[in-house]
């Protein structure tokens, strides 16, 4: 049988109320409070061997110490899954469940499951990192929430397919994947259904909820361009012809930076594009149309800008996910900042 360990706060751990909220972590063999129904609902797939109890204030005020102590408790324990809560609407408890689940998952690489009400601030803090089941507002929902935690735990322990957030009842972790509808419904039927509802002013559910945009504020203008160091960067895939960093032609995860300090332009035959998403003819014949070093050098000679940065930065934009692009962007910016770059001209295609 698999083994499970449950984390509880001082209240559900039957130590006491708010007056003992600074209770330091303890681990106890066997079942306390919600561990009993959890053990029962795990239906013999796993048994709860230990219960950990920690006061909400202790976790809140001495988080590092609390986590370290609990991880130390767990070091010599055998367990296949870690549960915390349910935390209902209790904010400090929710945050504690999230923090300890995160630490246990990272340290021991076991599945972690908790449960919170949608008004618990712990949901927003931790939902992208773990399975948080949608729980009730108060302990009146204890039996139901524990059962949901156990059911998801059983699936995880058996290695069964975890369905979508909506189907399983956990908060979406921000990961969108394709799935086949069961029973199957053609896209045409879904379109007509949604269309008729929209026309009639009835409620409909889009299959692609538009997330809030992550807009970056525009940086303040440079006051004196004649002293500014300007860098060139591109998602147009211009690289030395041998593509030394093996940047991918599509769905890129790599970027490169190449020395242009001794060049007045990017000669054809020395540089080319490896971007698979546009017609390469013009950029191969004259890479400056994509990375305009020639024009920038002219500005430099005229004194309109201070200096062209010694390197240009490059990757491929086609099929590249926003997440990878953001990561590469952060890495590139870090490099530019350390080189004292004042502004960047980012060319796309």
């Amino acid at each position: 049988m698999k083994k499970a360990i449950l984390y509880l706060n001082q209240f559900f751990g039957q130590i006491g109320g708010e007056d003992v909220a600074d209770f330091a972590p303890e681990i106890r063999e066997g079942l306390i409070g919600p561990a009993l129904p959890l053990n029962q609902k795990l239906k013999g797939v796993a048994e709860v061997t230990h219960t950990i109890i920690c006061g909400d204030n202790f976790m809140g005020s001495n988080q590092d110490e609390a986590i370290e102590t609990i991880l130390e408790f767990l070091k010599d324990k055998e367990f296949d899954i870690f549960f915390a809560g349910p935390a209902f609407r209790a904010g400090r408890y929710g945050s504690a469940c999230g923090n300890i689940c995160k630490a246990v998952k990272e340290k021991f690489n076991v599945p972690v499951v908790t449960s919170m009400n949608d008004e618990n601030p712990g949901v927003e803090m931790f939902k992208s990192e773990m399975y948080i089941l949608k729980g009730g507002a108060s302990a009146a929902k204890m039996r139901l929430d524990v059962k949901d935690m156990a059911n998801l735990g059983i699936k995880l322990l058996k290695g069964e397919e975890i369905l979508s957030a909506e189907e399983e009842g956990y908060y979406g972790r921000g990961k969108r994947h394709q799935k086949w509808l069961n029973p199957p419904v053609n896209a045409t039927d879904r379109v007509i259904d949604m269309l008729l509802k929209k026309i009639r002013g009835e409620k409909f559910t889009t299959e692609l909820p538009i997330p809030e945009l992550d807009l970056v504020p525009i940086a303040p203008a440079i006051k004196d361009m004649s002293k500014a160091k300007i860098a060139l960067a591109t998602s147009g895939g211009i690289v030395p012809v041998e593509n030394p960093d093996r940047i991918q032609s599509a769905s890129a995860t790599r970027w490169g930076k190449y020395d242009i300090s001794k060049l007045d332009n990017l000669p054809s035959g020395v540089f080319k594009t490896i971007h698979a998403g546009y017609d390469p003819a013009a950029a191969d014949a004259n890479p400056d149309v994509c990375v305009p070093l020639d024009a920038l050098r002219a500005y430099e000679k005229e004194g309109r800008i201070g200096k062209v940065h010694d390197y240009f930065y490059t990757t491929v934009g086609t099929g590249t996910t926003q997440k990878e692009a953001a990561r590469m962007g952060r890495e590139i910016v870090e490099d530019m900042l350390s080189a004292g770059v004042d502004a960047v001209i980012l060319t796309s295609t």
Binding site: I162, S164, A165, E166, E167, G172, R173, G174, K175, R176, H177, Q178, K179, W180, L181, P184, V185, N186, A187, T188, R190, V191, E207, L208
Partner: peptide
Amino acid sequence: DQVVGWSTKTMAEY
């Protein structure tokens, strides 16, 4: 992806 209409696939959050 059969965007012409055959698709019985959809997208869901996990």
